[in-house]
Design a protein around this nucleic acid. Structure first.
Lengths: 144, 144
DNA sequence: TATTGTTATACTCTATAACTATA
DNA sequence: TATAGTTATAGAGTATAACAATA
């Protein structure tokens, strides 16, 4: 007869994800960002030499064509810039600007605070276990 | 300086959720469903007397106006029907038809199989812990 | 007055295909 | 011939506001 919907991990994942994404988007709004743009900005801040859009797409689980638009918006806002790659003229390295770093820090604090409400019932040890499981879900389906 | 994106639970949740939803949608396609319609159908099968659209919306975490369209599609496909509520003429009770039950069973088996790939690295005990944590995330933010 | 279902609208996200320039 | 980035488009998902019927 099938399991109840409340036991379906796919359903539970998407419902929890939607909740957290909504809360994060609300918090990011005052910084002019949404989660997708924010994710790109965070990744750009993580690499000193910049990341190719292909690398960003793989890390985010998005199609490269979507990354183009996200980087466009961040670039228009002056938060990242596209630098030519000296080694390969096809690729463009996405690097955070000084303004990007500042926004990333403020927006990150707001996002972390916003997510405390939905995560309130989870202790730090549990969150670490949750991170581990979600990472393994990703690695099982997106090897490499 | 902020945590790495790979440690951000919001990001990990949405990435894992997207992955599982994509796999499930692919599996449900041959049954003419997508996850949202499927979720409504499963809930309709769970209640003998039917659920109001308000109840469905609350359980799914959707706005009631979205449930209208999902039920419309299921009703057009003959999988559910809207029955008048004898106790309250405003409400309409959503009930699965016999065809709905059959589709729910076949689609559920396909969805369960499809999700085995991304969940392959999690044992049953871990899945139970994951269910518990995701349920608590929901209950922390959507009390009631 | 408040609630249920409904309609309408706009925006965001997702999926796909095709094109260009380089390798 | 393959890869990085880009453009374009259509469809699905999300968010809000307003309305009629009923409580």
């Amino acid at each position: 007869m099938g399991q109840p919907l409340a036991d379906d991990l796919g359903f539970l994942l998407s419902r929890a994800s939607g909740l957290v994404v909504r809360a994060t988007n609300t918090a990011l709004a005052e910084h002019g960002l949404r989660v997708r743009q924010y994710s790109v900005l965070v990744l750009a801040c993580e690499s000193d030499d910049g990341s190719t859009q292909r690398e960003l797409a793989a890390a985010l689980g998005l199609d490269p064509s979507q990354v183009v638009l996200l980087v466009d918006e961040l670039e228009t806002g002056g938060l990242v810039e596209r630098r030519p790659d000296p080694a390969d003229r096809r690729t463009r390295l996405v690097v955070a600007t000084a303004a990007g770093w500042r926004v990333r820090e403020a927006a990150g604090a707001a996002a972390d605070a916003a997510v405390e409400t939905p995560l309130a019932l989870l202790g730090e040890a549990e969150r670490e276990r949750l991170r581990d499981m979600l990472t393994r879900i990703w690695s099982a389906a997106a090897p490499g």
